[in-house]
């Protein structure tokens, strides 16, 4: 389940008003989420939650559900 907080960060960074972000949604399905914006989103998530990802952890992430899980594991 993608939390509202994470959805808000992503939509805000991509300047999207509304987009249905589900667990299985991948970056290329979301308008504007290209390889350049990708890093901005990752940094926005790090800043908002005050966490820090490792490079390898981010490379493994395949969809938004996995990003949510990674964020959750960092918060514990």
């Amino acid at each position: 389940m993608v939390s509202e907080r994470l959805q808000k960060i992503i939509l805000n960074e991509l300047k999207l008003d509304n987009f249905d972000l589900r667990d299985e949604t991948t970056a290329n399905q979301v308008p504007g989420w290209d390889s350049f914006n990708h890093i901005n989103i990752i940094m926005a998530v790090e800043k908002d939650y005050n966490i820090r990802f490792k490079g390898l952890e981010i490379l493994k992430v395949k969809n938004i559900g996995e990003l949510q899980k990674l964020v959750d594991s960092k918060l514990q």
Partner: peptide, 21 residues
């Protein structure tokens, strides 16, 4: 190259923002 080189490089340069990319 995008997946195996650019993305890891971009991650490690991320503190430099757009300049890093």
């Amino acid at each position: 190259l995008l997946d195996y080189l650019f993305k890891p490089l971009q991650m490690s340069f991320r503190r430099m923002r757009t300049f890093g990319s």
